[in-house]
Design a protein around this nucleic acid. Structure first.
Lengths: 192, 192
DNA sequence: TGATCCATGTAAGTAGTTACATGATTGC
DNA sequence: GCAATCATGTAACTACTTACATGGATCA
């Protein structure tokens, strides 16, 4: 139900169409919980069917065509509240990187080195993304956040901003740890 | 195909029955790539069908019953080699903890605090598990590793051990980073 | 004789992936 | 007139989860 919660949380920032939701998703929550457009559209419909979202057709173009605008219902807000308050279920480790690392004796040193280098590159990209988000959140230039903050007073807004920052600081901390680890491994590899 | 690779890697330590594989899995690779018994048994059969494992019935009990012993074939070893050498595909972030964190304004401070405390508890357990594994690997008392090392000479064995250690050091580094992050968040929460 | 291993699954369901599919609109 | 963006999906597949199911062997 994470996708559902992510969408619910996103749309609490304000009513938006499916397309708009998909775009905003990619620029905000999607950095933390990735979902493809082909997952988002059907999920929105299911959420409407379940009463978490209400819809309103809004005209689009000149030919009388419409697009669908979604708004979070009271039930939707309640569901979001339930979700944040429910205990997280931690699934047991399932880590492709560590799995690969544990059996690197089955390849040559050059390939092993490359494995760690790619890990560093990947997490450098993630780190950069997270730092950009932190920047936009701190300066409150992030479009979706901006919209969300309109409905809060100053003290509440500070709280809202702080939680978003915590999340991305976590992403940074994690990626930095991954980079440090991979660099240490590269060192050990040399010595081997 | 990670489960398949994990099983392949496990059974390169030496021939084992399905039950034995499931038990050893839980005590070794399973710490890095969890799988339930109900996933393991059918996968072993599929791997046999695909020629990665060969089987031999071994008698069990007194009533002429048998259990199946699996051995990695040459094809299986080749597949394992291909897998370690293939580039890892990094999927985009999908992080339930960060997702939850980003929307903690939808709950009360006490629940928010609990969220981070549970995170710390979870990662403390993971950290402890990884440290235990490191201990057993370093002292070479780990039963599956011990069996694996029989087929290697001293220099190779050192290399094999080192990769296992790298993997678990990664698990430690990650969990430690998670704990540090959650503790920092608890601090920020107080100040809020 | 009862608990605890040993031994091996199936069946139904959920979540997510990959690839494909289509047409209208706006701005240069 | 053409590209980019707006708008919205479906279909087939893979991986994993949850819950259930069964019976022999060993040992106190």
């Amino acid at each position: 139900m994470s996708l559902r919660s992510a969408l619910l949380a996103l749309i609490t920032a304000g009513p938006m169409t499916g397309y708009d939701a998909a775009k905003r998703f990619a620029g905000s929550v999607g950095n933390i919980w990735y979902a493809s457009d082909s997952q988002i559209y059907p999920e929105l419909r299911k959420m409407e069917a379940d009463g978490l979202l209400s819809t309103r057709p809004v005209p689009w173009g000149s030919k009388g065509t419409t697009k669908t605008e979604y708004t979070v219902t009271e039930d939707g807000k309640a569901a979001l509240g339930d979700w944040v308050a429910s205990p997280l279920t931690y699934t047991l480790e399932r880590d492709p990187v560590r799995l690969r690392t544990a059996y690197l004796e089955w390849t040559d040193p050059a390939t092993a080195r490359q494995h760690f280098q790619e890990h560093i590159e990947h997490h450098s990209r993630v780190l950069q993304m997270a730092e950009e988000q932190i920047e936009e959140i701190t300066r409150r230039t992030h479009p979706t956040l901006r919209r969300r903050l309109e409905t809060y007073d100053d003290a509440e807004a500070r709280r809202v901003v702080e939680f978003k920052l915590m999340a991305y600081r976590g992403v940074c901390a994690r990626s930095q740890a991954e980079i440090d680890w991979a660099e240490e491994c590269l060192g050990t590899l040399q010595a081997l």
